[in-house]
Design a protein around this nucleic acid. Sequence first.
DNA 1: GAAAATACGGGACGCCCATCCCGCTTGTCC
DNA 2: GGACAAGCGGGATGGGCGTCCCGTATTTTC
Lengths: 190, 190
Amino acid sequence: MPEERPLRADARRNRARVLAVAIDTFAAEGMSVPVHEIARRAGVGTGTVSRHFPTKEALYEAIVRERVGQIVGDGRALLEHGDPAEGFFAFFRLMAEQGAADRGLAEGLAGVGFDMEAAAARGGYDVTGVWRELLARAQRAGAVRGDVEVADVKALLSGCVARERSGPEPAARERMIAIVRGGLRPAAPA
Amino acid sequence: MPEERPLRADARRNRARVLAVAIDTFAAEGMSVPVHEIARRAGVGTGTVSRHFPTKEALYEAIVRERVGQIVGDGRALLEHGDPAEGFFAFFRLMAEQGAADRGLAEGLAGVGFDMEAAAARGGYDVTGVWRELLARAQRAGAVRGDVEVADVKALLSGCVARERSGPEPAARERMIAIVRGGLRPAAPA
DNA sequence: GAAAATACGGGACGCCCATCCCGCTTGTCC
DNA sequence: GGACAAGCGGGATGGGCGTCCCGTATTTTC
Protein backbone atom coordinates (compact mmCIF):
# COMPACT_ATOMS: atom_id res chain seq x y z
CA MET A 1 0.00 0.00 0.00
CA PRO A 2 1.61 3.27 -1.13
CA GLU A 3 1.59 5.65 1.74
CA GLU A 4 -0.10 8.89 0.87
CA ARG A 5 1.59 12.15 1.41
CA PRO A 6 -0.69 14.88 2.70
CA LEU A 7 -2.12 17.20 0.08
CA ARG A 8 -0.81 20.69 -0.23
CA ALA A 9 -2.98 23.25 1.55
CA ASP A 10 -4.39 24.84 -1.61
CA ALA A 11 -5.06 21.43 -3.09
CA ARG A 12 -7.03 20.42 -0.03
CA ARG A 13 -9.06 23.60 -0.20
CA ASN A 14 -9.78 23.15 -3.89
CA ARG A 15 -10.78 19.55 -3.47
CA ALA A 16 -13.24 20.47 -0.74
CA ARG A 17 -14.66 23.34 -2.76
CA VAL A 18 -15.17 21.17 -5.83
CA LEU A 19 -16.88 18.50 -3.78
CA ALA A 20 -19.18 21.01 -2.11
CA VAL A 21 -20.13 22.62 -5.39
CA ALA A 22 -20.70 19.21 -7.00
CA ILE A 23 -22.99 18.16 -4.18
CA ASP A 24 -25.09 21.31 -4.51
CA THR A 25 -25.13 21.29 -8.26
CA PHE A 26 -26.01 17.64 -8.73
CA ALA A 27 -28.66 17.99 -6.05
CA ALA A 28 -30.22 20.95 -7.80
CA GLU A 29 -29.83 19.93 -11.42
CA GLY A 30 -29.13 16.24 -11.60
CA MET A 31 -26.19 14.21 -12.77
CA SER A 32 -26.19 15.46 -16.32
CA VAL A 33 -24.45 18.72 -15.46
CA PRO A 34 -21.08 18.73 -17.27
CA VAL A 35 -17.89 18.52 -15.27
CA HIS A 36 -16.72 21.76 -16.88
CA GLU A 37 -19.67 23.48 -15.28
CA ILE A 38 -18.78 22.15 -11.84
CA ALA A 39 -15.25 23.47 -12.34
CA ARG A 40 -16.52 26.84 -13.47
CA ARG A 41 -18.81 27.24 -10.48
CA ALA A 42 -16.09 26.14 -8.11
CA GLY A 43 -13.78 28.73 -9.65
CA VAL A 44 -11.14 26.20 -10.68
CA GLY A 45 -9.89 24.79 -13.97
CA THR A 46 -11.20 21.52 -15.33
CA GLY A 47 -7.78 20.00 -14.78
CA THR A 48 -8.12 20.58 -11.08
CA VAL A 49 -11.36 18.69 -10.95
CA SER A 50 -10.04 15.74 -12.89
CA ARG A 51 -6.86 15.55 -10.87
CA HIS A 52 -8.80 15.13 -7.65
CA PHE A 53 -11.51 13.03 -9.28
CA PRO A 54 -10.07 11.28 -12.32
CA THR A 55 -13.47 10.58 -13.82
CA LYS A 56 -16.96 11.92 -13.37
CA GLU A 57 -17.89 8.65 -11.77
CA ALA A 58 -15.17 9.07 -9.17
CA LEU A 59 -16.65 12.45 -8.29
CA TYR A 60 -20.07 10.87 -8.04
CA GLU A 61 -18.68 8.18 -5.81
CA ALA A 62 -17.10 10.68 -3.45
CA ILE A 63 -20.47 12.37 -3.14
CA VAL A 64 -22.25 9.12 -2.52
CA ARG A 65 -19.84 8.36 0.29
CA GLU A 66 -20.60 11.70 1.85
CA ARG A 67 -24.33 11.58 1.25
CA VAL A 68 -25.41 7.96 1.37
CA GLY A 69 -23.12 7.13 4.26
CA GLN A 70 -25.24 9.37 6.44
CA ILE A 71 -28.47 7.84 5.19
CA VAL A 72 -27.30 4.29 5.72
CA GLY A 73 -26.22 5.23 9.23
CA ASP A 74 -29.69 6.58 9.94
CA GLY A 75 -31.18 3.38 8.56
CA ARG A 76 -29.04 1.22 10.80
CA ALA A 77 -30.10 3.31 13.75
CA LEU A 78 -33.74 2.73 12.85
CA LEU A 79 -33.13 -1.01 13.20
CA GLU A 80 -33.17 -0.33 16.93
CA HIS A 81 -36.51 1.45 16.79
CA GLY A 82 -38.95 -0.03 19.26
CA ASP A 83 -41.63 -0.52 16.63
CA PRO A 84 -40.35 -2.45 13.58
CA ALA A 85 -43.03 -1.02 11.35
CA GLU A 86 -42.25 2.53 12.43
CA GLY A 87 -38.57 1.93 11.83
CA PHE A 88 -39.18 0.57 8.36
CA PHE A 89 -41.53 3.33 7.28
CA ALA A 90 -39.41 6.03 8.89
CA PHE A 91 -36.57 4.92 6.64
CA PHE A 92 -38.90 4.87 3.68
CA ARG A 93 -40.00 8.41 4.46
CA LEU A 94 -36.43 9.52 5.00
CA MET A 95 -35.38 8.25 1.61
CA ALA A 96 -38.42 9.81 -0.03
CA GLU A 97 -37.61 13.16 1.57
CA GLN A 98 -33.99 13.02 0.53
CA GLY A 99 -34.96 12.02 -2.97
CA ALA A 100 -37.39 14.91 -3.23
CA ALA A 101 -34.72 17.37 -2.13
CA ASP A 102 -31.86 16.00 -4.20
CA ARG A 103 -32.29 15.45 -7.88
CA GLY A 104 -29.02 13.56 -8.22
CA LEU A 105 -30.11 11.16 -5.53
CA ALA A 106 -33.52 10.81 -7.12
CA GLU A 107 -31.86 9.80 -10.37
CA GLY A 108 -29.70 7.31 -8.51
CA LEU A 109 -32.79 5.85 -6.86
CA ALA A 110 -34.47 5.58 -10.23
CA GLY A 111 -31.41 3.86 -11.68
CA VAL A 112 -30.77 6.61 -14.21
CA GLY A 113 -27.20 7.57 -14.99
CA PHE A 114 -24.70 6.13 -12.57
CA ASP A 115 -25.24 3.09 -10.41
CA MET A 116 -25.66 4.49 -6.91
CA GLU A 117 -25.91 1.08 -5.35
CA ALA A 118 -22.54 0.04 -6.80
CA ALA A 119 -20.85 3.30 -5.85
CA ALA A 120 -22.15 2.95 -2.31
CA ALA A 121 -20.94 -0.63 -2.13
CA ARG A 122 -17.45 0.40 -3.23
CA GLY A 123 -17.56 2.95 -0.43
CA GLY A 124 -18.50 0.23 2.04
CA TYR A 125 -22.14 1.19 2.42
CA ASP A 126 -24.68 -1.54 1.89
CA VAL A 127 -27.97 0.19 1.18
CA THR A 128 -29.68 -3.00 0.12
CA GLY A 129 -28.51 -4.69 3.29
CA VAL A 130 -30.16 -2.05 5.43
CA TRP A 131 -33.38 -2.39 3.50
CA ARG A 132 -33.24 -6.16 3.83
CA GLU A 133 -32.88 -6.03 7.58
CA LEU A 134 -35.47 -3.32 8.06
CA LEU A 135 -37.92 -5.19 5.85
CA ALA A 136 -37.32 -8.57 7.43
CA ARG A 137 -37.83 -7.09 10.86
CA ALA A 138 -41.09 -5.44 9.87
CA GLN A 139 -42.26 -8.67 8.27
CA ARG A 140 -41.39 -10.71 11.37
CA ALA A 141 -43.49 -8.29 13.37
CA GLY A 142 -46.37 -8.93 10.99
CA ALA A 143 -46.48 -5.30 9.88
CA VAL A 144 -45.64 -5.94 6.24
CA ARG A 145 -46.83 -8.61 3.81
CA GLY A 146 -44.50 -11.56 3.98
CA ASP A 147 -44.19 -12.00 0.23
CA VAL A 148 -42.71 -8.56 -0.38
CA GLU A 149 -39.10 -8.37 -1.55
CA VAL A 150 -36.51 -5.64 -1.15
CA ALA A 151 -36.67 -4.94 -4.88
CA ASP A 152 -40.39 -4.27 -4.51
CA VAL A 153 -39.75 -1.74 -1.77
CA LYS A 154 -37.12 0.03 -3.83
CA ALA A 155 -39.44 0.19 -6.80
CA LEU A 156 -42.22 1.65 -4.65
CA LEU A 157 -39.75 4.17 -3.30
CA SER A 158 -38.71 5.18 -6.77
CA GLY A 159 -42.37 5.70 -7.54
CA CYS A 160 -42.73 8.02 -4.57
CA VAL A 161 -39.67 9.97 -5.61
CA ALA A 162 -40.92 10.16 -9.17
CA ARG A 163 -44.08 11.86 -7.90
CA GLU A 164 -42.07 14.92 -6.95
CA ARG A 165 -39.91 15.08 -10.04
CA SER A 166 -41.34 18.43 -11.06
CA GLY A 167 -40.97 20.02 -7.66
CA PRO A 168 -41.45 19.25 -3.98
CA GLU A 169 -44.99 18.52 -2.92
CA PRO A 170 -45.00 17.45 0.70
CA ALA A 171 -48.73 16.72 0.67
CA ALA A 172 -48.38 14.41 -2.29
CA ARG A 173 -45.42 12.75 -0.64
CA GLU A 174 -47.43 11.99 2.49
CA ARG A 175 -50.26 10.64 0.37
CA MET A 176 -47.90 8.42 -1.58
CA ILE A 177 -46.35 7.09 1.60
CA ALA A 178 -49.79 6.42 3.03
CA ILE A 179 -50.73 4.51 -0.11
CA VAL A 180 -47.59 2.42 0.03
CA ARG A 181 -48.05 1.81 3.70
CA GLY A 182 -51.59 0.66 3.17
CA GLY A 183 -50.60 -1.55 0.29
CA LEU A 184 -47.81 -3.18 2.21
CA ARG A 185 -50.06 -4.11 5.11
CA PRO A 186 -50.75 -7.83 5.28
CA ALA A 187 -54.15 -8.71 3.91
CA ALA A 188 -56.60 -8.90 6.77
CA PRO A 189 -57.69 -12.49 7.27
CA ALA A 190 -61.16 -13.04 5.89
CA MET B 1 -52.73 23.06 -46.18
CA PRO B 2 -50.14 21.85 -48.71
CA GLU B 3 -51.53 18.83 -50.40
CA GLU B 4 -49.21 15.88 -50.08
CA ARG B 5 -48.19 13.90 -53.06
CA PRO B 6 -48.04 10.17 -52.48
CA LEU B 7 -44.62 8.78 -51.63
CA ARG B 8 -42.69 6.82 -54.18
CA ALA B 9 -43.11 3.09 -53.73
CA ASP B 10 -39.58 2.45 -52.47
CA ALA B 11 -39.84 5.41 -50.12
CA ARG B 12 -43.01 4.02 -48.61
CA ARG B 13 -41.34 0.65 -48.11
CA ASN B 14 -38.28 2.20 -46.50
CA ARG B 15 -40.31 4.38 -44.22
CA ALA B 16 -42.28 1.40 -43.00
CA ARG B 17 -39.15 -0.66 -42.52
CA VAL B 18 -37.42 2.06 -40.51
CA LEU B 19 -40.45 2.52 -38.32
CA ALA B 20 -40.75 -1.20 -37.66
CA VAL B 21 -37.07 -1.54 -36.83
CA ALA B 22 -37.21 1.52 -34.59
CA ILE B 23 -40.18 0.13 -32.68
CA ASP B 24 -38.42 -3.16 -32.06
CA THR B 25 -35.08 -1.62 -31.24
CA PHE B 26 -36.34 1.04 -28.87
CA ALA B 27 -38.53 -1.55 -27.19
CA ALA B 28 -35.61 -3.89 -26.67
CA GLU B 29 -32.86 -1.42 -25.84
CA GLY B 30 -34.42 1.88 -24.90
CA MET B 31 -34.34 5.31 -26.44
CA SER B 32 -30.61 5.79 -26.26
CA VAL B 33 -29.90 3.67 -29.31
CA PRO B 34 -28.31 5.96 -31.92
CA VAL B 35 -30.22 6.78 -35.08
CA HIS B 36 -27.30 5.45 -37.12
CA GLU B 37 -27.89 2.07 -35.55
CA ILE B 38 -31.57 2.11 -36.47
CA ALA B 39 -30.57 2.90 -40.05
CA ARG B 40 -28.00 0.12 -40.10
CA ARG B 41 -30.44 -2.47 -38.83
CA ALA B 42 -33.09 -1.34 -41.28
CA GLY B 43 -30.56 -1.67 -44.08
CA VAL B 44 -30.86 1.96 -45.17
CA GLY B 45 -28.60 5.00 -45.02
CA THR B 46 -28.88 7.52 -42.24
CA GLY B 47 -30.10 10.06 -44.74
CA THR B 48 -33.12 7.93 -45.46
CA VAL B 49 -34.06 7.88 -41.82
CA SER B 50 -33.71 11.59 -41.37
CA ARG B 51 -35.62 12.38 -44.52
CA HIS B 52 -38.65 10.49 -43.29
CA PHE B 53 -38.15 11.56 -39.70
CA PRO B 54 -36.25 14.86 -39.64
CA THR B 55 -35.21 14.46 -36.02
CA LYS B 56 -34.96 11.61 -33.59
CA GLU B 57 -37.86 13.09 -31.72
CA ALA B 58 -40.01 12.94 -34.84
CA LEU B 59 -39.21 9.24 -35.10
CA TYR B 60 -40.13 8.81 -31.47
CA GLU B 61 -43.36 10.65 -32.04
CA ALA B 62 -44.31 8.42 -34.95
CA ILE B 63 -43.79 5.42 -32.72
CA VAL B 64 -45.82 6.92 -29.93
CA ARG B 65 -48.68 7.45 -32.33
CA GLU B 66 -48.53 3.83 -33.38
CA ARG B 67 -48.01 2.45 -29.88
CA VAL B 68 -49.79 4.75 -27.47
CA GLY B 69 -52.75 5.26 -29.75
CA GLN B 70 -53.64 1.62 -29.26
CA ILE B 71 -53.22 1.85 -25.50
CA VAL B 72 -55.34 4.96 -25.19
CA GLY B 73 -58.01 3.27 -27.24
CA ASP B 74 -58.00 0.31 -24.88
CA GLY B 75 -58.24 2.71 -21.96
CA ARG B 76 -61.24 4.47 -23.42
CA ALA B 77 -62.91 1.12 -23.95
CA LEU B 78 -62.33 0.28 -20.30
CA LEU B 79 -64.35 3.34 -19.36
CA GLU B 80 -67.35 1.25 -20.39
CA HIS B 81 -66.40 -1.63 -18.14
CA GLY B 82 -69.24 -2.60 -15.86
CA ASP B 83 -67.11 -2.36 -12.75
CA PRO B 84 -65.28 0.98 -12.46
CA ALA B 85 -62.61 -0.47 -10.20
CA GLU B 86 -61.95 -3.33 -12.57
CA GLY B 87 -61.72 -0.93 -15.47
CA PHE B 88 -59.28 1.29 -13.66
CA PHE B 89 -57.02 -1.51 -12.51
CA ALA B 90 -57.22 -3.31 -15.82
CA PHE B 91 -55.77 -0.21 -17.42
CA PHE B 92 -53.13 -0.02 -14.73
CA ARG B 93 -52.19 -3.62 -15.38
CA LEU B 94 -52.20 -3.08 -19.12
CA MET B 95 -49.77 -0.18 -18.81
CA ALA B 96 -47.57 -2.15 -16.43
CA GLU B 97 -47.45 -5.05 -18.85
CA GLN B 98 -46.62 -2.84 -21.79
CA GLY B 99 -43.96 -1.07 -19.79
CA ALA B 100 -42.38 -4.35 -18.79
CA ALA B 101 -42.25 -5.52 -22.38
CA ASP B 102 -41.06 -2.26 -23.93
CA ARG B 103 -38.06 -0.50 -22.56
CA GLY B 104 -38.65 2.62 -24.61
CA LEU B 105 -42.15 2.90 -23.22
CA ALA B 106 -40.85 2.27 -19.71
CA GLU B 107 -38.47 5.18 -20.10
CA GLY B 108 -41.28 7.34 -21.39
CA LEU B 109 -43.41 6.39 -18.40
CA ALA B 110 -40.54 7.24 -16.09
CA GLY B 111 -40.08 10.58 -17.80
CA VAL B 112 -36.56 9.77 -18.98
CA GLY B 113 -35.42 10.96 -22.37
CA PHE B 114 -38.26 12.26 -24.48
CA ASP B 115 -41.57 13.50 -23.20
CA MET B 116 -44.03 10.79 -24.12
CA GLU B 117 -46.99 12.71 -22.81
CA ALA B 118 -46.21 15.67 -25.07
CA ALA B 119 -45.57 13.49 -28.11
CA ALA B 120 -48.86 11.70 -27.53
CA ALA B 121 -50.68 15.00 -27.16
CA ARG B 122 -49.28 16.26 -30.47
CA GLY B 123 -50.60 13.05 -31.98
CA GLY B 124 -54.02 13.73 -30.55
CA TYR B 125 -53.89 11.14 -27.78
CA ASP B 126 -54.66 12.33 -24.29
CA VAL B 127 -53.19 9.75 -21.95
CA THR B 128 -53.71 11.90 -18.91
CA GLY B 129 -57.31 12.46 -19.89
CA VAL B 130 -57.98 8.74 -19.97
CA TRP B 131 -56.39 8.32 -16.58
CA ARG B 132 -58.41 11.20 -15.21
CA GLU B 133 -61.70 9.71 -16.35
CA LEU B 134 -60.85 6.20 -15.27
CA LEU B 135 -59.73 7.44 -11.87
CA ALA B 136 -62.70 9.72 -11.33
CA ARG B 137 -65.05 6.90 -12.20
CA ALA B 138 -63.37 4.52 -9.78
CA GLN B 139 -63.44 7.17 -7.08
CA ARG B 140 -67.11 7.89 -7.65
CA ALA B 141 -67.77 4.20 -7.19
CA GLY B 142 -65.91 4.35 -3.89
CA ALA B 143 -63.26 1.91 -5.06
CA VAL B 144 -60.32 4.32 -4.80
CA ARG B 145 -59.38 6.86 -2.14
CA GLY B 146 -60.92 10.19 -3.01
CA ASP B 147 -57.78 12.22 -2.35
CA VAL B 148 -55.69 10.45 -4.96
CA GLU B 149 -54.60 12.45 -8.01
CA VAL B 150 -53.73 11.33 -11.51
CA ALA B 151 -50.09 12.25 -10.90
CA ASP B 152 -50.06 9.85 -7.96
CA VAL B 153 -51.34 7.04 -10.12
CA LYS B 154 -48.73 7.72 -12.76
CA ALA B 155 -45.97 7.74 -10.17
CA LEU B 156 -47.18 4.43 -8.75
CA LEU B 157 -47.26 3.03 -12.25
CA SER B 158 -43.72 4.15 -12.89
CA GLY B 159 -42.75 2.38 -9.69
CA CYS B 160 -44.34 -0.85 -10.94
CA VAL B 161 -42.55 -0.53 -14.25
CA ALA B 162 -39.26 0.21 -12.49
CA ARG B 163 -39.59 -3.09 -10.65
CA GLU B 164 -39.03 -4.96 -13.90
CA ARG B 165 -36.25 -2.81 -15.26
CA SER B 166 -33.78 -5.67 -15.15
CA GLY B 167 -36.05 -8.18 -16.83
CA PRO B 168 -39.68 -9.32 -16.86
CA GLU B 169 -40.92 -10.83 -13.61
CA PRO B 170 -44.63 -11.46 -13.90
CA ALA B 171 -44.90 -12.61 -10.29
CA ALA B 172 -43.34 -9.41 -9.02
CA ARG B 173 -45.60 -7.44 -11.30
CA GLU B 174 -48.70 -9.04 -9.85
CA ARG B 175 -47.43 -8.42 -6.35
CA MET B 176 -46.74 -4.78 -7.13
CA ILE B 177 -50.19 -4.35 -8.60
CA ALA B 178 -51.72 -5.99 -5.57
CA ILE B 179 -49.82 -3.62 -3.29
CA VAL B 180 -50.94 -0.59 -5.25
CA ARG B 181 -54.48 -1.84 -5.35
CA GLY B 182 -54.49 -2.36 -1.62
CA GLY B 183 -52.95 1.04 -1.00
CA LEU B 184 -55.45 2.81 -3.20
CA ARG B 185 -58.43 1.28 -1.42
CA PRO B 186 -60.30 3.83 0.70
CA ALA B 187 -59.48 3.49 4.39
CA ALA B 188 -62.09 1.32 6.01
CA PRO B 189 -64.22 3.45 8.33
CA ALA B 190 -63.17 2.87 11.92
C1' DG C 1 -37.53 4.19 -73.30
C1' DA C 2 -36.06 8.77 -72.21
C1' DA C 3 -36.60 12.84 -69.30
C1' DA C 4 -37.79 14.61 -64.96
C1' DA C 5 -38.82 14.05 -60.40
C1' DT C 6 -37.93 11.72 -56.34
C1' DA C 7 -35.29 9.16 -53.08
C1' DC C 8 -31.01 6.90 -51.60
C1' DG C 9 -26.42 6.31 -49.24
C1' DG C 10 -23.19 7.51 -46.27
C1' DG C 11 -19.65 10.84 -45.53
C1' DA C 12 -19.16 15.62 -43.68
C1' DC C 13 -20.22 18.83 -40.25
C1' DG C 14 -20.99 20.71 -35.82
C1' DC C 15 -21.90 20.20 -31.06
C1' DC C 16 -21.19 18.47 -26.53
C1' DC C 17 -18.60 16.32 -23.25
C1' DA C 18 -15.02 13.68 -20.50
C1' DT C 19 -10.27 13.21 -20.13
C1' DC C 20 -5.38 14.31 -20.79
C1' DC C 21 -1.44 17.19 -21.11
C1' DC C 22 1.94 20.81 -20.39
C1' DG C 23 3.81 25.43 -19.58
C1' DC C 24 3.27 28.27 -15.63
C1' DT C 25 2.31 29.40 -10.67
C1' DT C 26 2.19 28.58 -5.87
C1' DG C 27 3.24 26.39 -1.62
C1' DT C 28 6.76 23.93 1.12
C1' DC C 29 10.99 22.99 3.25
C1' DC C 30 15.61 23.83 4.33
C1' DG D 1 14.65 33.59 0.30
C1' DG D 2 15.77 30.16 -2.92
C1' DA D 3 15.10 25.64 -5.05
C1' DC D 4 12.20 22.04 -5.99
C1' DA D 5 8.11 19.57 -5.75
C1' DA D 6 3.22 19.90 -6.09
C1' DG D 7 -0.63 21.80 -8.06
C1' DC D 8 -3.13 24.83 -11.35
C1' DG D 9 -5.58 26.42 -15.61
C1' DG D 10 -7.62 25.71 -19.65
C1' DG D 11 -6.75 24.41 -24.32
C1' DA D 12 -6.15 20.18 -27.01
C1' DT D 13 -7.76 15.65 -28.01
C1' DG D 14 -10.86 11.99 -29.03
C1' DG D 15 -15.21 9.88 -29.34
C1' DG D 16 -20.18 9.82 -29.83
C1' DC D 17 -24.13 11.45 -31.86
C1' DG D 18 -27.78 14.05 -34.55
C1' DT D 19 -28.39 16.42 -38.73
C1' DC D 20 -27.43 18.00 -43.40
C1' DC D 21 -25.86 17.69 -48.04
C1' DC D 22 -24.95 16.12 -52.68
C1' DG D 23 -23.50 12.95 -56.27
C1' DT D 24 -25.72 8.74 -57.72
C1' DA D 25 -29.50 5.45 -58.37
C1' DT D 26 -34.29 4.40 -58.94
C1' DT D 27 -38.98 5.22 -60.03
C1' DT D 28 -42.53 7.60 -62.35
C1' DT D 29 -44.54 9.81 -66.19
C1' DC D 30 -45.43 10.68 -70.85
